[in-house]
Computed example of a mutant assay.
Amino acid sequence: MSTYGLERLFSPRSIAVVGGSPRPSSLGAAVLRNIKASGFAGKVGVVNRQYADVDGVPTVPDLKSLPFVPDLVVISAPAAAVPEIVAEAGLAGVAGAAILSAGLGYGAGSLAEIAGQTARRHGMRLFGPNCLGVMVPRAKLNASFASHQPSDGHVALISQSGAVASAMIEWAAERRLGFSGIASIGDQLDVDVADLLDYFALDDHTSAILIYLEAVKDARKFMSAARAAARLKPVIIVKSGRMAQGAIAAATHTGALAGSDAVYDAAFRRAGM
């Protein structure tokens, strides 16, 4: 689907957070705190059947009970509930969702496959599962559970690892460096590195693209996007799994083998990254 629908997710007019609890350590509460702290000017709703409010914001039992249709839904509910939430969001006309929840599995019959198929039927985009969220400082958007607020800048960060993205945000904050956008893609159920390369390559606010990559799902699509992006601006890529133990660690996160490091090196050189 490439860049279809991504503009609404990177500059949403409204957001709904689904899941979480009043506990300060819950993902939903952390996301809500970040949305409020970033100064987001649009409408914000919270969906939760178990609690009357999360972080002081009143909740509704489901998405259709909101007085508006959100552009972006951030899902931190248990894995088993995710496909139903995606279906409800699709029927409501939501543009896309960031699935922070982990444990949706991989392959045929998994919760991830069901959620992905449902989203495609409705033309809805998905970040994740198992991701940190989405951040665009100039749009005052921090729909993530990162521990720091990123500053505005001209480098786009695409990370398959939420932990690496969070560490990069913290490192940059100490050095007063900023980002044009930060996308944590997790398991790349829908939105992948290639989609984001296409998007940020044409983004006027982005001067360079930094990628942390564990594995590529569609080699042909990735190479096409990488070559096009690298002709327009610098693309710097950090690939994990160079050593055997790193490859094993990457496989536990992505559900796929990281592949031969020599093959990736050759592909990166050919693309001009």
Score class of each variant (00 low, 15 high):
4 Y>A: 14
5 G>A: 15
11 S>W: 03
11 S>Y: 06
18 V>W: 09
19 G>H: 15
23 R>E: 14
34 N>D: 10
35 I>A: 07
39 G>V: 13
46 V>T: 14
47 V>M: 01
52 A>P: 12
60 V>H: 11
67 P>R: 13
70 P>I: 03
71 D>Q: 09
82 V>E: 01
88 E>R: 10
91 L>R: 15
91 L>F: 05
92 A>Q: 12
95 A>W: 01
99 I>Y: 01
99 I>E: 02
110 S>W: 07
115 A>N: 03
117 Q>K: 12
120 R>Y: 06
121 R>H: 11
123 G>A: 04
125 R>E: 13
128 G>D: 09
129 P>E: 05
131 C>K: 00
135 M>D: 02
136 V>E: 00
139 A>T: 05
140 K>L: 15
142 N>V: 08
155 V>N: 06
155 V>M: 14
161 S>I: 09
167 A>I: 07
175 R>S: 12
180 S>F: 12
184 S>E: 00
185 I>Y: 03
190 D>C: 11
192 D>N: 15
192 D>L: 04
194 A>I: 08
196 L>V: 02
199 Y>F: 14
200 F>D: 07
205 H>M: 05
213 L>S: 07
214 E>C: 04
218 D>M: 06
218 D>I: 07
219 A>D: 13
220 R>G: 08
222 F>M: 13
226 A>I: 08
226 A>F: 04
227 R>K: 15
228 A>G: 13
230 A>I: 03
231 R>D: 01
240 S>T: 12
245 Q>N: 05
250 A>L: 03
254 T>F: 05
255 G>A: 06
266 A>S: 04
268 F>R: 07
270 R>Q: 05
271 A>F: 04
273 M>K: 01
